[in-house]
Design a protein around this nucleic acid. Sequence first.
DNA 1: CCCACCATAGGTCGGCCGACCCATTTAGGA
DNA 2: TCCTAAATGGGTCGGCCGACCTATGGTGGG
Lengths: 211, 211
Amino acid sequence: MIRILIADDHQLFAESLALGISAIPDLVVVATASDGREALNILKEQLIDVLIVDLEMPEVDGLTVLRSQRSSPPSIVVTMHASDEQRNAAFAAGAAAFLPKSTPLGDLAAAIRAVNLGMTLRNNLTMSEILDSHRQPVLDEIASSLTARERELLTKMAEGLTSTPELAEALFISDKTVKNHLASIYHKLSVSDRASAVVEAINRGIVHTSS
Amino acid sequence: MIRILIADDHQLFAESLALGISAIPDLVVVATASDGREALNILKEQLIDVLIVDLEMPEVDGLTVLRSQRSSPPSIVVTMHASDEQRNAAFAAGAAAFLPKSTPLGDLAAAIRAVNLGMTLRNNLTMSEILDSHRQPVLDEIASSLTARERELLTKMAEGLTSTPELAEALFISDKTVKNHLASIYHKLSVSDRASAVVEAINRGIVHTSS
DNA sequence: CCCACCATAGGTCGGCCGACCCATTTAGGA
DNA sequence: TCCTAAATGGGTCGGCCGACCTATGGTGGG
């Protein structure tokens, strides 16, 4: 779970982006700041993994934030005027990535994961390569208490195979065994039906959505 | 149900905002456009209740879109450079509201409802409400064929409320009505049980996971 | 060498679910 | 204005689901 701080004086953008990012299972926006000073305060008080910052901000601007923080949390600069000067200034100030606001949301998500791992995305080419190679394991206790077969069942259900006969056929086992596995899953996830089990599995990152 | 078109060349903004707006039961982002020409095409083809448009766009800009449409769908102009000239120009071109991108997300939601009712917001407002999430290109036909109530049901199920009594209580309706809505959802999503419905809804971006 | 755990499979049974009917009221689009 | 569609509520019924229990063979750790 990557904790993100968004610093942007355009609230519509900041809040919307926060919502958009939070819809991604392994990313969480823990705070938004509408100027650099506020951002610096939050950075002091909260645990932030990745900082997303706009260069243009009133009072204390993005570059100042970057310089005063250096690489404590890896930072992604987003801007609407993606000039080379800005780009160079951003990296000189310690940015780990530089993206225009015309970037698709999915690419930003991948960039967040990349810089969180310590990578620096200096050009768009290496970026697209890095993006694809980002999946995530990291399972909590409950998730890891599930057996391989149980996870297989959850995966199949997340693919749309939710009825007993479908699951039995997909895993080459009898209907009875499917129901046994399901009962075990329900107990471990503290649920009592297939729909809730799938929701829990997705929210815990045990399975992934296709989209 | 208010059908919204977002026209903005900054994809991060447009997609995020679409995400923010669409899961509100009475609001749905039917499409996003990244330039004025695309916006005009969509306006011709689809039924749009409210247009959210950025003034600065490549090719055909926001003002041009407004002038060529006049007040067919009431339009909200969002911009990052909120000058008086832009403001006057926007209203002269037929805008129903003019908001800087520093507007809180909640105010925009209220503005959407207001202009949809025919109001023109020439000065600042005070409002409330919250939002959720949705996705990027054109919301597919199946997703937008769902009614507001049906999406509410799906949202609740994605939050873990999957049994009939739970859903009935959450939506303040009878068990029978819940089952009626579910039947309608199954038909539209081509599934036949709650678990598959939730999976489909998540994969289509109709609902989002909490984490 | 055991014991714990997993994967497999079978049985029973109450209850909820999903399919298919229907009706009424309201609101919005043609 | 008319008519479609949405939202609400009701009924029936077959069947699948989930809870609980038992059993066996395999595998791995102590």
